[in-house]
């Protein structure tokens, strides 16, 4: 016999709102990826305007999660879901902020003389978008394998970001009078890389929802760096 009907309905409502927030993020991302190479100001403005809506969604979901935790004291998979939702929506909100940041750069860049940008930008943006859509899909389907594949892809975005940054550094040396434009592109690359990090973080929470195992992603880059520092400290 089904009991706790009201509780289940409330949980379902929160799930539905997290899903909607995910859809809004994909929309923001698609718009940003379209606007970025074209320096399309109208699209950039739409992203910035929509960021307020996404912030609002985050705080409403957060409030609903806190209320249900206080009133219903969820345990087991209910608790895993709610705890994860609270982390996931925070990641999503940051993704939206990053899209808005990039949109602000688009608006500034649109008023400046154009500069060539590294071709890896498009590839990185597509990989990053693919990560986000896979993450949202794995959330909707509770697909742990897909979530794991998403996490793995983060390394590709990290590498592409490193390449782009190195190329932009070279371009700045060649065209120091265009440093402002290049700096915006430099920061845009970093924000795209951060969006991919947030997608990986969400994917790790999806794994936690499904199988209860913590699976936070620590990139090889940081692990290698940390080991290097440790070895250096030992030597001293």
């Amino acid at each position: 016999m089904a009991v706790r009907k009201e509780y289940d309905e409330e949980l379902q409502k929160i799930y539905g709102n997290v899903r909607l927030m995910g859809m809004e993020i994909i929309q923001a991302l698609d718009t940003m990826i379209y606007a970025f190479p074209r320096l399309d100001v109208d699209s950039a403005n739409r992203i910035i305007a929509n960021d307020v809506k996404i912030d609002q969604m985050e705080s409403e979901i957060e409030e609903a999660c806190i209320a249900i935790v206080v009133k219903q004291q969820p345990v087991a998979s209910d608790w895993r879901r709610l705890a994860s939702y609270m982390r996931m929506i925070s990641d999503m909100e940051r993704m939206s902020d990053n899209c808005s940041d990039i949109s602000l750069f688009i608006k500034k860049l649109a008023d400046m003389p154009r500069v060539p940008i590294p071709e890896e930008f498009q590839k990185m943006a597509e990989t990053m978008r693919d990560m986000v859509t896979r993450t949202i899909h794995s959330f909707l389907t509770s697909d742990v394998e897909l979530a794991e594949m998403t996490i793995e892809k983060d390394d590709i975005v990290d590498r592409d970001c490193d390449i782009i940054m190195a190329k932009i550094a070279e371009l700045i040396k060649k065209e120091p009078d265009k440093v402002e434009q290049y700096l915006y592109y430099f920061l845009a690359a970093k924000y795209m890389e951060r969006i991919a990090d947030h997608a990986a973080s969400i994917a790790a929470w999806i794994k936690f929802i499904v199988n209860g195992k913590f699976g936070m992603k620590y990139t090889d880059r940081y692990r290698n760096e940390a080991e290097k520092i440790k070895a250096e400290t030992k030597e001293k």
Binding site: M1, A2, Y7, D8, V75, A76, W79, R80, G212
Partner: peptide
């Protein structure tokens, strides 16, 4: 048991869905 019960019956009971 309270975070990740192995048996669905345990989950149903501790989450109050066992009626």
């Amino acid at each position: 048991v309270f975070l990740n019960p192995k048996n669905p019956k345990t989950e149903e009971y501790i989450s109050g869905r066992f009626g």
